[in-house]
């Protein structure tokens, strides 16, 4: 009984800090915040959203300030930076200011739907996972707005990666994840790559450090506003990172 009581104490004090790195997301930011508030207020979990805007010229920060007025500064926290400095450092910057013991990372471009966050949290609690990753490649997961070529590249790259690295997670390049805060810090410290392949290295390092990983199938709706990025340089970056991790982990 005593154990159960203390467990529920811990559960009660759990707080989830959602990190939203933004760059020119003026159109999307209000919607994503609205959706986060809708689904998390409903679920009753304690949370905060940390918006890390990298000096967007489109005035994303002004919109963020308006949203803070609407929803309150305990829920919406603004931690802007002067200029574009990359994803890894954005997370470090966010963690520093996060008051939660769990960190949720997601894109602000509406491709990641906040309705999955309560599912991440439930799964984490059931198994005490160190990391919960959203996956587009399993069960009801999927992607909207991709043509045949894009799907082929994605599935092909995923097949090769699974074969070479056996990472114990089906979606390596996705960036919709929940981490225990101290573990995210350790993972970031052990990662060397930058940009788009950073997400892949994070999950590979998690396997290497023997952290437990859970997965929630997610639907990924490719950018509603703005442009989607996958070019030749991304594929080269991906291949390089794959070989690097193959040889070193």
């Amino acid at each position: 009984m005593a154990a159960t009581a203390s467990d529920s104490e811990i559960t009660k004090s759990d707080k989830y800090s959602i990190l939203l790195p933004t760059y020119n997301e003026r159109e999307n930011l209000p919607i994503i915040i609205w959706l986060i508030v809708k689904y998390l207020d409903n679920s009753g979990y304690d949370y905060e959203v940390i918006i890390i805007d990298d000096g967007s010229p489109d005035g994303t920060l002004d919109i963020a300030k308006q949203l803070q007025k609407i929803y309150g500064s305990s829920k919406i926290v603004l931690r802007p930076r002067e200029k574009k400095l990359g994803l890894g450092t954005a997370y470090i910057h966010g963690i520093k200011h996060a008051t939660g013991n769990f960190i949720i990372i997601m894109d602000a471009d509406l491709s990641h739907h906040p309705k999955f966050i309560p599912k991440f949290i439930e799964l984490q609690r059931q198994h005490d996972y160190d990391v919960v990753s959203g996956t587009r490649y399993r069960e009801d997961g999927g992607v909207h707005g991709w043509d045949f070529k894009r799907k082929l590249i994605s599935r092909g790259a995923n097949f090769v990666t699974q074969l070479l690295l056996r990472p114990g997670a089906s979606d390596l390049t996705g960036s919709f994840r929940l981490y225990k805060k101290d573990i995210l810090q350790k993972l970031i410290d052990s990662c060397v790559s930058k940009g788009y392949v950073f997400q892949m290295e994070m999950i590979i390092r998690a396997r290497q450090l023997e952290y437990t990983i859970g997965e929630v199938p997610i639907t990924f709706v490719d950018r509603v506003y703005g442009e989607s990025k996958l070019g030749g340089s991304e594929i080269v970056q991906f291949a390089k990172a794959l070989l690097y991790l193959f040889a070193t982990t």
Binding site: P30, I31, W34, L35, L110, H113, Y137, D140, G141, G142, V143, H144, G145, W146, F148, K151, L152, S154, R155, F159, T219, F220, V221, V224
Partner: peptide, 23 residues
């Protein structure tokens, strides 16, 4: 896997509805 890749039409539609509601 390419041909059975879920297209998430329902999720996309739901999102469009929610965007309208949010705005």
């Amino acid at each position: 896997r390419v041909f059975t890749f879920n297209n998430c039409e329902a999720a996309a539609k739901e999102l469009q509805e929610e965007i309208k509601e949010a705005k």
